Amino acid sequence: DEEIEKWIETLLKRNISLRVNGKDLEIGSEEFKEWVEKFIKEV
């Protein structure tokens, strides 16, 4: 979905790490990609 890709790009540009389930996810890491894929499937 384009919306999500733009959102991810924005996050990448800002180099933010997300806190997911109490863990810091490094943007661009494998864990982050897995989380994004799960997130996309749920939406």
Score class of each variant (00 low, 15 high):
11 L>T: 01
14 R>T: 15
18 L>D: 01
33 K>W: 15
6 K>Q: 08
12 L>G: 05
5 E>I: 14
12 L>T: 04
2 E>V: 12
39 F>V: 08
43 V>L: 15
34 E>I: 11
22 G>W: 12
18 L>M: 07
11 L>R: 00
43 V>Y: 14
8 I>Q: 01
13 K>S: 14
7 W>N: 00
39 F>L: 13
19 R>M: 05
12 L>H: 03
11 L>I: 11
17 S>K: 11
37 E>T: 09
14 R>F: 15
10 T>V: 08
36 V>D: 00
34 E>F: 09
22 G>C: 10
33 K>D: 05
33 K>F: 14
43 V>W: 13
13 K>P: 04
11 L>H: 03
8 I>N: 00
22 G>K: 01
12 L>P: 02
27 I>C: 04
21 N>L: 10
10 T>A: 15
13 K>R: 07
9 E>L: 02
1 D>Q: 13
42 E>S: 13
41 K>T: 08
28 G>V: 05
38 K>V: 07
8 I>A: 02
28 G>W: 11
37 E>R: 10
19 R>Q: 10
29 S>W: 12
36 V>H: 01
38 K>A: 11
40 I>F: 13
41 K>A: 07
35 W>Y: 05
10 T>L: 10
42 E>C: 15
34 E>N: 11
29 S>P: 07
32 F>M: 03
25 L>S: 03
42 E>I: 13
21 N>Y: 03
36 V>G: 00
32 F>E: 00
3 E>Y: 14
18 L>F: 03
26 E>T: 11
29 S>G: 05
15 N>M: 15
12 L>N: 05
35 W>S: 01
4 I>K: 04
29 S>Q: 04
31 E>D: 07
41 K>N: 07
19 R>T: 09
24 D>L: 14
19 R>G: 04
38 K>Y: 06
10 T>W: 12
34 E>A: 12
39 F>H: 06
32 F>K: 00
42 E>M: 14
18 L>A: 05
30 E>S: 11
8 I>E: 02
23 K>A: 08
35 W>D: 00
25 L>Q: 03
22 G>H: 03
35 W>A: 05
6 K>M: 06
36 V>S: 00
25 L>I: 10
29 S>R: 03
32 F>A: 02
26 E>D: 12
26 E>C: 14
31 E>I: 04
25 L>R: 02
11 L>P: 00
35 W>T: 02
34 E>Y: 10
41 K>Y: 04
7 W>G: 00
16 I>Y: 00
15 N>R: 07
14 R>G: 15
9 E>T: 02
11 L>Q: 02
1 D>C: 15
40 I>P: 00
3 E>M: 12
43 V>Q: 07
24 D>S: 10
11 L>G: 00
40 I>A: 05
37 E>A: 10
2 E>R: 13
42 E>K: 09
10 T>N: 15
19 R>A: 08
37 E>Q: 08
41 K>V: 05
27 I>S: 05
25 L>H: 04
17 S>Q: 12
31 E>H: 05
15 N>G: 15
19 R>H: 09
17 S>C: 11
23 K>M: 09
27 I>T: 06
12 L>W: 00
19 R>D: 03
7 W>T: 01
22 G>T: 03
25 L>G: 04
38 K>F: 07
25 L>K: 02
17 S>H: 11
20 V>P: 04
12 L>I: 13
32 F>Y: 07
34 E>L: 10
11 L>M: 06
10 T>P: 01
41 K>E: 06
10 T>F: 06
12 L>E: 04
28 G>E: 05
33 K>Q: 10
20 V>G: 04
31 E>V: 05
25 L>Y: 04
7 W>C: 15
